[in-house]
């Protein structure tokens, strides 16, 4: 099968106010794969997802999804494009005033004129896929963090998207819930034939799950490869990251004056 790229990010620069977040970012996401974007907190990973979803505009460069340049689409075309994307937010982002059932039904009701009977069947199908068919009448406030992420996943796949983006899907989950979500991501990807992008910094779970990994640091890709290549990588940054070392290319100490100087030692007369 020839490799086909669903998402192409070409030389993208992006800045919040004056803080440059992405500097010349390049990335290719292959269709049908589960791809992970890793990096420290605040390195621009979430920004990247928002650029793909068209919620942010790059200063320069282009973001292409399925052959269309997202940052050049008008309002209507962008919204048409977004119907083919699903996104799982960090804490699920369920609508707190709707029940589990209504949350999953929301995109269907907004975008289709399907009769209520059919919507019911579709919603139960999606909820069944994440194992929460029995929780349909609960309110989001009554379910656990792992469960709300599964509901959000059911909601994200409600319109059968071609691309699902996961923003920190593992953050703050217990090991069991984490395993459940990781499994679901893989199974849904393969069963629905979609492409998945996972933004995360949980290394071990991710390495076991994904097909390809991008390492992002200071707004640019510093390393990439399959999980095996990454494990074998000798790059200091990757090494520090996957072995969770305290000091390395990413320093433990915030830059400042030397310690000795700061507490008044060393230089005579200081």
């Amino acid at each position: 099968m020839p490799t086909e790229h669903l998402v192409e990010i070409n030389n993208v620069n992006f800045a919040y106010d004056n803080r440059l977040v992405l500097k010349g970012m390049n990335m290719l996401i292959t269709k049908g794969q589960v791809v992970s974007i890793m990096g420290g907190s605040g390195c621009g990973k979430t920004t990247l997802l928002r650029l793909i979803g068209g919620q942010l505009q790059p200063a320069t460069g282009s973001v292409r999804v399925a052959g269309e340049t997202i940052n050049e689409l008008g309002h209507d075309d962008l919204y048409r494009m977004r119907r083919r994307m699903g996104m799982l937010f960090q804490f699920g982002a369920l609508f707190t005033d709707l029940s589990v059932f209504d949350n999953v039904a929301f995109p269907l009701r907004e975008h289709t004129d399907l009769p209520e009977m059919l919507i019911r069947d579709l919603v139960l199908m999606k909820l069944h896929a994440v194992g929460l068919r029995g929780a349909r009448q609960l309110m989001p406030s009554a379910i656990s963090g792992g469960m709300s992420r599964r509901v959000a996943l059911a909601r994200a796949i409600a319109l059968d998207p071609m691309l699902i983006m996961y923003d920190e899907p593992f953050a703050g989950l217990d090991p069991i819930a984490l395993g459940v979500i990781a499994n679901l991501i893989r199974r849904l990807n393969d069963a629905l034939g979609v492409t998945s992008i996972i933004v995360t910094h949980d290394v071990q779970e991710t390495l076991a799950l994904v097909d390809y990994i991008y390492f992002v640091s200071e707004g640019a890709v510093v390393a990439q490869g399959t999980p095996d290549e990454i494990r074998a990588s000798t790059l200091p940054f990757v090494h520090q990251f996957i072995h969770a070392e305290m000091d390395g290319p990413v320093p433990f100490h915030y830059s400042g004056k030397p310690y000795a100087q700061d507490i008044g030692l060393g230089e005579p007369g200081g």
Binding site: R82, R83, M87, T96, E110, L159
Partner: peptide, 18 residues
């Protein structure tokens, strides 16, 4: 504000609902 803080508004946008 809470809908914004909990990313419900973002989620809606990405679902192509303004």
């Amino acid at each position: 504000g809470l809908m914004k803080a909990t990313e419900q508004l973002s989620a809606m946008e990405i679902m192509a609902v303004d």
